[in-house]
Protein backbone atom coordinates (compact mmCIF):
# COMPACT_ATOMS: atom_id res chain seq x y z
CA UNK A 1 0.00 0.00 0.00
CA UNK A 2 1.66 3.14 -1.23
CA UNK A 3 1.86 6.00 1.20
CA UNK A 4 2.50 9.56 0.17
CA UNK A 5 3.91 12.46 2.09
CA UNK A 6 1.73 15.40 1.16
CA UNK A 7 1.70 19.07 2.03
CA UNK A 8 -1.47 21.01 1.44
CA UNK A 9 -1.98 24.66 2.29
CA UNK A 10 -5.35 24.84 3.96
CA UNK A 11 -6.78 28.25 4.79
CA UNK A 12 -3.32 29.72 4.48
CA UNK A 13 -1.47 27.23 6.66
CA UNK A 14 0.66 24.42 5.28
CA UNK A 15 -0.23 20.98 6.64
CA UNK A 16 1.77 17.82 6.04
CA UNK A 17 0.66 14.27 6.48
CA UNK A 18 1.36 10.77 5.26
CA UNK A 19 -1.64 9.40 3.41
CA UNK A 20 -2.71 6.33 1.48
CA UNK A 21 -3.18 6.74 -2.28
CA UNK A 22 -6.93 6.29 -1.98
CA UNK A 23 -7.39 8.68 0.94
CA UNK A 24 -9.99 11.26 -0.01
CA UNK A 25 -9.40 14.97 0.32
CA UNK A 26 -12.61 15.37 2.33
CA UNK A 27 -11.31 12.90 4.90
CA UNK A 28 -7.97 14.69 5.02
CA UNK A 29 -9.78 17.93 5.77
CA UNK A 30 -12.23 16.50 8.28
CA UNK A 31 -10.28 13.79 10.02
CA UNK A 32 -6.62 14.72 9.73
CA UNK A 33 -7.10 18.47 10.14
CA UNK A 34 -10.27 18.30 12.21
CA UNK A 35 -12.00 20.90 10.04
CA UNK A 36 -15.47 19.44 10.24
CA UNK A 37 -17.30 22.30 8.53
CA UNK A 38 -16.85 20.46 5.24
CA UNK A 39 -19.54 17.77 5.11
CA UNK A 40 -20.23 14.54 3.26
CA UNK A 41 -23.68 14.09 1.79
CA UNK A 42 -23.77 11.72 -1.15
CA UNK A 43 -20.45 10.06 -2.03
CA UNK A 44 -21.27 10.20 -5.74
CA UNK A 45 -20.32 13.78 -6.63
CA UNK A 46 -23.89 15.00 -6.72
CA UNK A 47 -24.69 16.96 -3.56
CA UNK A 48 -21.80 19.38 -3.06
CA UNK A 49 -21.89 19.32 0.76
CA UNK A 50 -18.14 18.68 0.57
CA UNK A 51 -17.36 21.70 -1.60
CA UNK A 52 -14.04 23.41 -0.94
CA UNK A 53 -11.93 25.72 -3.05
CA UNK A 54 -8.95 24.02 -4.66
CA UNK A 55 -6.57 26.65 -5.99
CA UNK A 56 -9.51 29.03 -5.81
CA UNK A 57 -12.06 26.93 -7.70
CA UNK A 58 -14.94 25.15 -5.98
CA UNK A 59 -14.66 21.36 -6.21
CA UNK A 60 -16.29 18.40 -4.52
CA UNK A 61 -13.67 17.18 -2.10
CA UNK A 62 -15.25 13.71 -1.79
CA UNK A 63 -14.12 13.10 -5.37
CA UNK A 64 -10.58 14.39 -5.10
CA UNK A 65 -7.75 12.32 -3.67
CA UNK A 66 -5.85 13.98 -0.88
CA UNK A 67 -2.64 13.26 -2.78
CA UNK A 68 -4.02 15.21 -5.76
CA UNK A 69 -4.08 18.28 -3.54
CA UNK A 70 -0.40 17.99 -2.70
CA UNK A 71 1.29 21.34 -3.16
CA UNK A 72 -2.02 23.09 -3.75
CA UNK A 73 -4.15 25.57 -1.85
CA UNK A 74 -7.40 24.53 -0.24
CA UNK A 75 -9.90 26.88 1.33
CA UNK A 76 -12.69 25.57 3.52
CA UNK A 77 -15.62 27.24 5.24
CA UNK A 78 -13.39 27.78 8.25
CA UNK A 79 -11.24 30.06 6.09
CA UNK A 80 -14.02 32.45 5.14
CA UNK A 81 -13.93 34.56 8.27
CA UNK A 82 -10.82 36.73 8.37
CA UNK A 83 -9.54 38.51 11.48
CA UNK A 84 -12.90 38.14 13.16
CA UNK A 85 -14.72 39.62 10.18
CA UNK A 86 -17.30 37.52 8.41
CA UNK A 87 -17.07 37.11 4.66
CA UNK A 88 -19.98 38.87 2.91
CA UNK A 89 -21.33 35.49 1.83
CA UNK A 90 -21.57 34.42 5.48
CA UNK A 91 -23.37 37.63 6.34
CA UNK A 92 -25.69 37.11 3.39
CA UNK A 93 -26.70 33.62 4.50
CA UNK A 94 -27.44 34.87 8.01
CA UNK A 95 -29.29 38.02 6.94
CA UNK A 96 -31.39 36.42 4.23
CA UNK A 97 -32.18 33.16 6.07
CA UNK A 98 -30.24 31.25 3.45
CA UNK A 99 -29.86 28.21 5.67
CA UNK A 100 -31.97 25.94 7.82
CA UNK A 101 -30.32 22.70 8.93
CA UNK A 102 -26.92 24.10 7.98
CA UNK A 103 -25.58 20.91 6.45
CA UNK A 104 -25.28 22.07 2.83
CA UNK A 105 -24.43 25.60 3.94
CA UNK A 106 -20.63 25.47 4.02
CA UNK A 107 -20.47 24.00 0.52
CA UNK A 108 -23.08 26.38 -0.71
CA UNK A 109 -21.19 29.35 0.71
CA UNK A 110 -17.89 28.23 -0.83
CA UNK A 111 -19.57 28.05 -4.24
CA UNK A 112 -21.19 31.44 -3.71
CA UNK A 113 -17.92 32.95 -2.54
CA UNK A 114 -16.11 31.64 -5.64
CA UNK A 115 -18.88 32.89 -7.94
CA UNK A 116 -18.59 36.40 -6.55
CA UNK A 117 -14.85 36.46 -7.01
CA UNK A 118 -15.35 35.96 -10.72
CA UNK A 119 -18.69 37.66 -11.30
CA UNK A 120 -19.24 40.77 -9.26
CA UNK A 121 -22.94 41.20 -9.90
CA UNK A 122 -24.44 37.92 -11.04
CA UNK A 123 -28.02 37.68 -12.27
CA UNK A 124 -30.47 35.39 -10.52
CA UNK A 125 -30.13 32.89 -13.38
CA UNK A 126 -26.33 32.96 -13.08
CA UNK A 127 -26.56 32.35 -9.34
CA UNK A 128 -28.97 29.45 -9.80
CA UNK A 129 -26.67 27.92 -12.42
CA UNK A 130 -23.60 28.42 -10.26
CA UNK A 131 -25.11 26.64 -7.24
CA UNK A 132 -26.70 23.86 -9.28
CA UNK A 133 -23.98 21.45 -8.16
CA UNK A 134 -24.95 21.99 -4.53
CA UNK A 135 -28.14 20.39 -3.25
CA UNK A 136 -30.19 21.90 -0.46
CA UNK A 137 -33.17 20.04 0.93
CA UNK A 138 -34.43 22.72 3.32
CA UNK A 139 -34.58 26.17 1.78
CA UNK A 140 -36.00 25.78 -1.70
CA UNK A 141 -33.05 27.93 -2.82
CA UNK A 142 -35.05 31.20 -2.81
CA UNK A 143 -33.18 32.62 0.15
CA UNK A 144 -29.86 31.17 -0.94
CA UNK A 145 -30.17 33.22 -4.11
CA UNK A 146 -30.96 36.26 -1.97
CA UNK A 147 -27.99 35.51 0.27
CA UNK A 148 -25.63 35.55 -2.70
CA UNK A 149 -27.24 38.75 -3.96
CA UNK A 150 -26.80 40.29 -0.52
CA UNK A 151 -23.12 39.41 -0.56
CA UNK A 152 -22.75 40.77 -4.09
CA UNK A 153 -24.29 44.08 -3.06
CA UNK A 154 -22.13 44.20 0.04
CA UNK A 155 -18.98 43.75 -2.01
CA UNK A 156 -19.82 46.57 -4.43
Amino acid sequence: MAMHKITVTVNGTAHSAEVESRFLLVHFIREVLGLTGTHIGCDTTHCGACTVLLDGEPVKSCTVLAVQAHGRRVMTVEGLERDGKLDPIQEGFMQEHGLQCGFCTPGMMMTGHALLRRTKNPSEAEIRQAISGNLCRCTGYVNIVKAVQYAAAKQQ
Binding site: T45, H46, G48, T51, L54, E57, P58, V59, K60, T63, V64, T111, Q129, A130, S132, G133, N134
Partner: peptide
Protein backbone atom coordinates in the same frame (compact mmCIF):
# COMPACT_ATOMS: atom_id res chain seq x y z
CA UNK B 1 -21.87 18.56 -18.59
CA UNK B 2 -22.66 17.38 -15.05
CA UNK B 3 -22.69 20.48 -12.85
CA UNK B 4 -20.50 23.57 -12.45
CA UNK B 5 -18.39 22.11 -9.65
CA UNK B 6 -17.73 18.92 -11.55
CA UNK B 7 -16.75 21.04 -14.56
CA UNK B 8 -14.00 22.62 -12.48
CA UNK B 9 -12.30 19.20 -12.41
Amino acid sequence: IADPLVRNR
